[in-house]
Computed example of a mutant assay.
Amino acid sequence: MAANARSIILHQYDISPFSEKVRVAFGIKGLEWFACDEPVIMPKPELVALTGGYRKIPVMQIGADIYCDTQIILRELERRFPSPTLFPGADKGLGWGFAMWADRVFFQAAVAIIFGGGTPIADDAFIKDREKLTGRPFDIEGMKAAAPMMAEQFRAQLDWLEGQLADGRTFLLGTEPGLADASAFYNLAFVRWASPGGVKLIEAFPGVLAWEKRVAGLGHGTRKEVSREEALDIAKAATSTEEAKADPGEPNGLKPGDSVTIMADDYGRDPIPGELVSSSAQHVAIRRSDPRVGEVVVHFPRAGFLILKS
């Protein structure tokens, strides 16, 4: 079956660690989805046509609705496909907090030991691309110097996972897998793809190893493929399902129809302008148009993003 306006399309590439987080969520939920492979480095003309300038991976597309950042992707998957949930038990807030730790603290420790260990991923083109993405030097020599210390940090966080699993639980928050598992797991997957030294650290923790195998066994749902051109055609033919909605608790007075600019607060701060459609404590959606895809609505999380009234 070909992809259509109701299909989940994940703009990704296979060695993208954050894409792995979403792929594990597909496995937990047993979803069918379409992989739309994007380049690892710029230029990414098809992705930029959809997002208005956001270039980080992954991006999820459902028709003319475009979801940037794993936080909003997983929020939307949970809304559309609530069972099986990504938040088993009564720890929904803890799951989101766990994910933020994994995305920032745990991930940065993984990055340092991967690139400090001389991974072949880091060729000249990759380094130049990441320098533009972060707005600062991608200091391989500095990472090499820091790698022994960052190995200590990575090991310390692996030990936290080991402690969480010490009572024999199946997954990090209990008997069922969820967001916490997908978030921690992708960092281990990234290290396994690119850092033999990091793998040795992982394999020193038997509880983590057993849990890692259980998460890997969840799979990635049912994967199909779609080309970038096909994905753009789907967006152009579709209409967003997002309805205009004001947030009565909006702290800065934003309302539908306002011209705003959105950007990440850490790296990849490409400003994305558009017209506000809806907002809440956890999301913001803007309408924008592009000659290739027509009118689309682009969705972002609130945590980790800045919204400026134009």
Rank of each mutant, 00 (worst) to 15 (best):
L133I: 14
A125R: 14
K144E: 13
D181C: 04
S183W: 04
G178V: 03
A146N: 10
A122W: 07
L165C: 07
F185N: 01
G174H: 08
F171H: 10
T170K: 13
I127L: 08
A151G: 15
A180R: 01
A184L: 03
L158D: 11
L188W: 06
S183C: 09
N187L: 05
A194E: 15
L188S: 03
E162W: 02
L188F: 10
M149W: 07
E176D: 14
L173I: 10
E141N: 11
A182F: 04
P148E: 12
L173V: 10
A180W: 06
A122Q: 08
A182C: 15
R192G: 05
G178D: 10
D167M: 06
L133K: 00
Q157R: 12
A156S: 15
G142S: 08
A166Q: 12
R169L: 02
G178K: 09
W193M: 14
D123S: 08
A151I: 00
V191R: 07
I127C: 12
E162Q: 15
G135H: 04
E162K: 02
E152H: 09
F190D: 13
Q164M: 15
D139L: 07
D123P: 10
E176C: 03
G178C: 08
L188I: 15
P196I: 04
V199I: 15
I202V: 13
R130M: 11
L161H: 01
K144T: 15
A180K: 02
A189Y: 10
F190P: 01
G178W: 06
K132C: 06
R192N: 07
A146W: 02
G198H: 03
E162L: 05
F138P: 03
A122C: 04
F171A: 06
A180V: 09
P148Y: 12
A194K: 01
G178H: 08
T134G: 00
V199Q: 14
F126L: 03
L201Y: 03
A147K: 13
A147Y: 00
I127Q: 05
S195I: 01
M149R: 12
M143Q: 11
M149A: 15
G135A: 08
K132N: 12
